[in-house]
């Protein structure tokens, strides 16, 4: 009997702790003195994915460069909150962190794609702080492929949309898929008839391409460069607006199809993030992208620097939303 009462007491204690902890929560977040001493404690950088992906890498490298260059003196711990390409994180974030100046997160086109697919939140529900880098997709064939230019591929697809097997590192509606379809649409091809073979990530696509299991890969430039140097593949076009420095490859536009696809990455803050916090991050990110340390990172990662301040970034997101939702509508992928 005594045993049981001890137990009940312990569980009761845990319950009391639970209640008091809930009661304490709000007081922790109230800030005195409107941001004069911001930040006076570590700012959490959230990568809404597991470790090792593009978001995680961007977040960790940003945190690293900020620390190394002493631009920001407080700690910038990176936290991974995984789930639903960022959806899980956003749901929690919009519920618990409105007005929170001490959490920012990284994102990229999926925040727009999720919305186009029917997710209830969009970039408008959070505070775009700045866009910092872009990656571009490339269209690649094996070195012994009969296709020498993007035009030859598009012409073959016009004849018979199933004649060229296109592989990409994402599901239909993902970035690699949209990147190629945006170009194919401009070429006047019936894009829903194209044989698109989806793979899990750029590594698998390159494997399939090198094994001649697909004819053309749509994948990030960084995935391809090592193969290009070895001469195992040929890059037909890149999806950027201008040629990429150090790459002798035409853009899709130059190849005659008026399409670009920008895989941007940027940072966002909470809904109703205080203006001082937003400005602090906007300014520091602007300073950071100019440091040699960051430029080295960009070079190693084969990224393209594309800093956009909050205002430009917000406008850009509006335009991209249009581009993506139009494309997805045409592909029948919207809800």
């Amino acid at each position: 009997m005594k045993k049981k009462s001890g137990l009940i007491a312990l569980i009761g204690l845990m319950l009391i702790l639970l209640v008091t902890a809930c009661g304490q929560q709000p007081t922790k977040q109230t800030q005195a003195n409107e941001g004069a001493d911001y930040p006076n404690k570590p700012v959490k950088i959230v990568a809404p994915s597991g470790t090792g992906g593009g978001w995680d890498t961007t977040a960790r490298l940003m945190s690293k460069v900020m620390g190394e260059t002493k631009l920001i003196k407080v700690g910038l711990p990176v936290e991974n909150i995984e789930g639903g390409s960022g959806k899980v994180f956003l749901e929690g974030f919009l519920k618990n962190n409105v007005g929170d100046p001490y959490t920012i997160f990284v994102n990229s086109p999926p925040i727009l794609i999720n919305t186009a697919q029917g997710f209830k939140y969009s970039y408008k529900d959070v505070t775009p702080i700045a866009g910092i880098i872009s990656e571009y997709d490339s269209f690649v064939v094996p070195a012994n492929s009969k296709y020498k230019t993007l035009k030859e591929v598009m012409d073959a697809l016009k004849q018979n949309p199933a004649s060229v097997k296109i592989g990409g590192g994402s599901a239909p509606g993902g970035m690699d898929h949209l990147a190629f379809m945006a170009a194919a649409k401009k070429a006047g091809i019936e894009i829903t008839k194209i044989n698109y073979v989806p793979f899990q990530g750029g590594g698998q696509v390159m494997t399939a391409l090198l094994g001649n299991n697909i004819d053309l890969a749509s994948t990030g430039i960084s995935e391809v460069q090592g193969q290009m140097q070895a001469g195992t593949v040929r890059m037909l076009a890149v999806t950027s607006a201008q040629r990429i420095e150090g790459l002798d490859v035409p853009t899709v536009k130059e190849a005659g199809y008026d399409a670009t696809f920008d895989i941007w990455r940027g940072f966002f803050g909470a809904k109703d993030m205080p203006a001082y916090a937003k400005k602090y991050w906007e300014d520091n990110l602007a300073k950071m992208v100019k440091t040699p340390e960051w430029q080295q990172v960009v070079k190693n990662q084969k990224w393209t620097s594309s800093y956009r301040n909050s205002e430009e970034f917000t406008k850009f997101l509006g335009e991209q939303t249009q581009v993506i939702s139009n494309l997805m509508k045409e592909l029948g992928l919207t809800k």
Partner: peptide, 25 residues
């Protein structure tokens, strides 16, 4: 209860409570 407490009280305190309670049980 442990899972509920986890994020609020933090890992260390909720785990302490868990070990105490369960060990006792």
């Amino acid at each position: 209860i442990y899972i509920l407490l986890f994020q609020i009280l933090g890992f260390v305190i909720s785990s302490m409570a868990m070990i105490l309670a369960l060990g006792w049980l």
